Amino acid sequence: MEPSYNNQMSEFLLLGLSEEPELQSFLFGLFLSMYLVTVLGNLLIIQATISDSHLHTPMYFFLSNLSFADICFVSTTVPKMLINIQTQSRVITYAGCITQMCVFVLLGGLDSLLLTVMAYDRFVAICHPLHYMVTMSPRLCGLLVLASWIMSALNSLLQSLIVLWLSFCTDLEIPHFFCELNQVTHLACSDTFLNDMVMYLSAVLLGGICLVGILYSYFKIISSIHAISSAQGKYKAFSTCASHLSVVSLFYGTLLGVYLSSAATHNSQSSAAALVMYTVVTPMLNPFIYSLRNKDIKRALGRFLRRKTIKGTIFLGLKKCP
C-alpha cells in the first residue's frame, strides 16, 4: 500500500456551527469570551500552584499539568474557528487539518490519563495516608506525567499516520468547527476499516482503562471513607477529592454525550453542540470547579491577587513621585 500523494493538494471546508450570516458576530464574541476565560482561569491555577509553597504537593502538581493541557486543548480548535469567522473563510489545508486532528487526539488522551493519575493520587492520600509522601515522591509524580504524555503521543501518532494513507474525494466538507478524527476519516474514498478498528481499540484501551482505574480508585476511596467513624472526618476526607470527582463527571459526561449523539443521530448540529461542550465548555469550567470547591486554591489565588495589587499600587505610587 502506498500513500495517496494527491492529498497534499487537498483542502477541507469547516462548516462550523452555523451558516447564518447574522449569527457569525455573535458566535465570534461568544467563543472569543469563552476562550479568554478558559486561558485566564487555567493560567491563574498554574500561577497559584507555582507561587504558593503550600501547594507544592503532588495533587496540585497534577492539577497544574491538567490546566496546561486544557489551555493547549482549547487553543487547538477555537483560534482557527475565530479566524475563519473573521475572514469569512472556511478553508483549512490538508496539512493544517491533520496537524489539528493529531494535537487534538493527543491532548484529549492526555486529559483522560491525567485525571486517572489524579484519582490514583487521591486513592493513596485517603487509603494510605501514612505512606502518602513516600509513595507519591517527586520522582514518581514526574514519571506519571511523562508516561501520560508518551502514551497520548503514541496513540495520536498512530491514529494520524493511518489517516495519511487514506485517499480523499472531492467532497471534503466537515460538519464541525474543527478537524475531528472520525469526521475526517469518513470523508475518505478508500477503505476505512483499519482506521475504524484502531479508533475503537484506542477508545476501549485508553479510555476504558482510564475509566476503570478512576472507578476502582473511587470504590476504594468510598470504602475507606465509610470506615471513618466521625462525620467530620468523613467530610474532610471526601472534600479533598470532591473537585476532582466533579471534573471527572463533567469530562466523561460530555465525552459520552459526543459519542452518543454521533451514534444515535446524523444531525450535525446536535453533534457539533456536544463537541462544543466537550472541547470548549469543559476546559473553561475546570478552573471554576477547583477554585470554588477548593479552599487551598481560593486562599492561594487570594494571596497571589493581593500581591499583584500591592505591587501595582507601589509601582503607581513611585511613578507619581517627582
Rank of each mutant, 00 (worst) to 15 (best):
G41K: 04
F219C: 03
T240G: 02
S112V: 09
L215V: 12
S262M: 05
I92G: 01
H244R: 00
V78A: 08
I50K: 10
V204Y: 11
S261Y: 03
K220W: 02
L107G: 07
L256A: 15
L256Q: 12
S291E: 06
V105A: 12
Q159C: 12
C210S: 15
S25V: 15
V248D: 02
L181I: 10
S152N: 04
G317S: 10
T93F: 02
M277A: 15
Q159E: 14
V258Q: 08
V117I: 15
L27H: 09
S249I: 07
C169A: 14
S67C: 02
T116S: 12
G96M: 09
L157K: 07
P175F: 04
M118P: 00
F104T: 13
G108E: 08
D171R: 09
M101N: 12
L30R: 01
Q86S: 14
L17R: 08
M284R: 02
I289G: 06
C127S: 11
L130E: 14
G312P: 00
L205T: 15
G208D: 08
L256T: 15
C241M: 08
K236E: 15
Q88I: 04
S148K: 02
Y132R: 15
S53E: 13
L285M: 12
L82F: 13
A273M: 13
G207K: 06
G253M: 12
M136A: 05
S10P: 01
D196G: 10
L166A: 03
